[in-house]
Every structure is written in C-alpha cells, then in structure tokens.
C-alpha cells in the first residue's frame, strides 16, 4: 500500500513497483484513508510519506501499528535525519528511504522486510501444502478412479466463501491450523455417486461420502507430513461439516493455501491454513 498525499509521487512509486513482483493493493492520500485501507487490505508492506494533510507520516504509522503491531512500514521522505529515524522507529516504522528513491533501493528494502514472511510461506508451501495436493490427487484416484491435475496457490483473501459443502478438519501439533475440503452441492453429488457407484436420492448419503473422502484426503496428507517431518507430530480432529450458501470462513491469522483438483464435474478444493508464528 502506498501512502502519499501527492498524486505524482503515488503514480511514480506505483510505476516503479509495477516493474517488480510487488503488487500495489491500495493507495491512500491521507492518514484516515491509510488506516481504513490498511484494515480492508492488510497489505504486506506500506510505503509512507512524511507529509500528509491530516497527520504526519509518523502519527499515521503509529495508527496503523495500533491495528496491526506486525505492520511493515517504510518511510519515504525528502528529509532523513537521526531525529526522524528515532521517532519513526518508536512509532513502528521498519525502514527509511530518501526521495527520490531508485527502484533498486526500493526493491532491496521491500524484499528485506518481506524475507521472513516469504521464507516461511515458501517453507509451508513446500513442506506442508504440497503434501495436501499430492494426497488429494491420490485420494481422488483411489476413490473414483480419475486422474486429476492439482494446483497450489497462496490464498490471500480474508474469507473463504463456500456454496455447497465444507468439511473442516482441525490440525493440532506444529504447525497447528485447519483444513477445509469444499465443493459445490452438484460436484459433491456427482463425486459421491462415483464413489459409491450408485445413484443417490438422499442428500445425507452424499454428505457422508464427502466427509469420508475429506477424512481420507486430510488423513493421508498428515500421515505423509509426519512421515517426513518426524519431530513435530501433527494430528487431525474429527470433521465438522458446514453446508448451505454464502458460508464465509475467515482466514485471519493463518497462512492459507488453496489446493484445487480440477475434474470435469467441478473443482474439489482444500483450503489449508497454518497459524502464524511458529
């Protein structure tokens, strides 16, 4: 997120960032807007101008850190002196750059601040999310005899919205979290019919089949993780099943991945989330 009262500065920064892998999710022109946009988007990083019409950049940073103590803020100002740096640090600012900023300096600073987060996400993706994708692929093959492609994506939305069925299985141990297996009602029905090899009239039977499948997907995922990472045993809770429309599940305080298995009767997905911190 870019916070700057000058449209020219915002545009220049946005243009610089457009050449990188960083994405600008929001731009604020004053402290009030910065606070509300921060809440709305939870950006990974904030660039902060010193001069804002309703408060200075230090006060604005203080307000952002009040909402999120883990906020990563880079102050970009024309002036950069020891007094400003000291004040800024106590307000929660992580780094200081002087205008005009070269693209390289900007990227280096942003990368450095993100590193902790990026490496944890990369670790979770490789060691934890990918086994879920492999277990989903194998599970679908075992249960209904279909080869599917799967993909793993970092899921950054605040909610997972489900229309159909969502089976939640809690993960305890390290890291703890939860996995949600979900699909639409139609996909569930077709999947259950293929699994049981008969036409189903009763929706409850389809729910049960989907729950059983979810248990297999998640159980196998966790077994495979435990087989590789032996000192941190993960366990799974019994499933809780939600069905209906517009079911909104929060992803707050979790690093989540969406794993999609694409079938010709719809996607079968797992949203797996791991608690932040260790």
């Amino acid at each position: 997120m870019i916070v700057d009262d000058s449209k020219v500065s915002r545009t220049m920064l946005a243009n610089n960032l457009a050449k990188t892998n960083f994405e600008v999710v929001a731009m604020a022109k004053d402290a009030a807007e910065a606070r509300s946009l921060y809440e709305e988007h939870s950006p990974d990083l904030v660039t902060m101008d010193m001069n804002l019409p309703d408060a200075d950049g230090i006060e604005c940073s203080r307000r952002i850190c009040a909402i999120d103590p883990g906020a990563k803020i880079v102050m970009i100002s024309a002036m950069k002196d020891a007094g400003l740096i000291e004040q800024g640090k106590s307000a929660g600012i992580s780094a200081f750059l002087q205008k005009p900023v070269s693209t390289n300096d900007l990227i280096d600073t942003l990368m450095l601040l993100c590193q902790e987060k990026i490496s944890r996400i990369a670790m979770l993706r490789e060691s934890y999310a990918k086994p879920f994708a492999a277990a989903l692929k194998q599970g679908i093959l075992d249960l209904i005899g279909i080869q599917v492609d799967t993909k793993v994506e970092l899921y950054e939305k605040k909610y997972l919205e489900v229309n159909g069925i969502a089976i939640i299985i809690g993960l305890t141990g390290t890291p703890n979290g939860r996995a949600i297996v979900y699909m639409t009602g139609d996909t569930m029905k077709t999947f259950a019919e293929k699994m049981l090899n008969e036409k189903l009239e009763d929706e409850e039977e389809a729910h049960e089949a989907a729950e059983e499948a979810a248990n297999i997907f998640i159980g196998h995922s966790v077994s495979s993780i435990n087989g590789i990472i032996t000192n941190k045993e993960m366990r799974i809770t019994p499933p809780g099943t939600f069905f209906g429309s517009g079911v909104k599940m929060t992803t707050q305080k979790l690093v989540t991945f969406k794993i999609t298995a694409m079938t010709d009767f719809g996607d079968i997905c797992i949203n797996v989330g791991f608690a932040e911190g260790d």
Binding site: G177, T241, K248, M249, T250
Partner: peptide
C-alpha cells in the same frame, strides 16, 4: 488433549454437523 486453531464462520443460511 491438544486443540486446533479456531475456525470462525459467518452467515445464517447454513447448518453445521459436528
């Protein structure tokens, strides 16, 4: 015992089977 992270769900049009 060990506990999982809480899963918060919002909305009225759904049922839960535990």
């Amino acid at each position: 015992v060990d506990i999982s992270t809480p899963n918060l769900t919002i909305g009225e049009g759904f049922s839960v089977k535990i």
